[in-house]
Design a protein around this nucleic acid. Sequence first.
DNA 1: GTGCAACTTTGCATTCGACGCAATATCGGC
DNA 2: GCCGATATTGCGTCGAATGCAAAGTTGCAC
Lengths: 223, 223
Amino acid sequence: MIAPGRPDATTSSSLEALALALETSGDVGLRERKKRARRESLIDATQRLVERDGIDSVTVEAICEAAGVSTRTFFNYFESKDDALLGHVPWPVSPVAAARFVEGGPSGDLLVDLEELLATVIEQQPAGHERFRRAIALVAHEPRLLARHMAWFESHRSEIHQLVEQRLGPAPSVDPETVASIAMLLVHATAQRWESTGADSDPRAHLAAVVAEVRALFAGDLR
Amino acid sequence: MIAPGRPDATTSSSLEALALALETSGDVGLRERKKRARRESLIDATQRLVERDGIDSVTVEAICEAAGVSTRTFFNYFESKDDALLGHVPWPVSPVAAARFVEGGPSGDLLVDLEELLATVIEQQPAGHERFRRAIALVAHEPRLLARHMAWFESHRSEIHQLVEQRLGPAPSVDPETVASIAMLLVHATAQRWESTGADSDPRAHLAAVVAEVRALFAGDLR
DNA sequence: GTGCAACTTTGCATTCGACGCAATATCGGC
DNA sequence: GCCGATATTGCGTCGAATGCAAAGTTGCAC
């Protein structure tokens, strides 16, 4: 990890995107800030071009030209073109929320606490809600992206899996794998509804609605 | 480059597969049977080579040499190398079971009937249980394949989605999207357990166990 | 500010997946 | 046996992705 440093020493730069990104993450050295700025500008360039021309008419070369870096550099930042398009960026689970969940809190009921954990995760989306919604929208009508998106989710699935395993202990009453899959389903369904109803709606409310529906389904209340 | 003249010794095995496939589906013309046979032998060759050498050391060219077809033909059969590896083959929902589900049967409870529908789907796996298990095993420790696998599932998801929509009518008590996602989750979790416990176990039992776990989770029975 | 070490970017070459196209071979029906 | 329909094949091409080593930046100590 990186220790928080001095307040932002504003360096005058001619690049707008660079300057913007520099001020939003003013904590570490110039090298690190430049790195983040480039990553952001690559994601921006990718999403902008794809929105205009469609996913398959946009080459990595074109993206790099727009962002002003070499194509080789692109692949220093992203494993694939699709990753840049979806703006896949590390999305950590808050250690505080995770610890509370593992210890059996806050309510004591597994599902309720899982819901709480997921809510904090969703709210802490680092890249900003706007980009997250854009990614969900892209996924919604590009099947190929859904695949990549799920793979990304998968890395989180294993994190949730571990937390559930820790909470349940050595003789789990339910398969942690299953719980983790459920968690991913809830996040995905919530994101989808959130996307289709507008960014200003409350993600927690959507999450609660999804949980309620699934509960009704499994309670045998539906015909 | 390659000088693919007459088929060499390696084709003998694929000829066996060809003969096998020819006799197992004796209903349509020779042309159709040959087509299926080739598809089977390509899947076989792909899985065999990948099991031996690892996914990234196996080129499409190598697969085609082993199966005795041109690389161009490979892509007449599969959209991608990964599809051949997973043995993705059309997996239709039985129209009879689907109709019964849509009409509100057999039990009247949405979840119970969904379970029944999925059970028939799983049991009717066309490619044979053995290959299905191999695919699940591959997916389990090759993250990249998970993506493709999910995309394949996605096409089924939309089919389930339609059935649920038809059953629930114009004012659905639950989002059909969510139900479809749940269905895919159940199938996937069931497949995973089935794979890890041996092919001779009963898939229906695994499905029932998964459903029971999720039900307990949403009933608030778990801590 | 000079210089050195660590890290990044970049150009270049290469491999391989995937597709379009046109020529050739095969099948099915008559 | 011939002809239309369908499948296979070879060839050319595009573009994603990676390894490698040279050139460029940044961080840091003095």
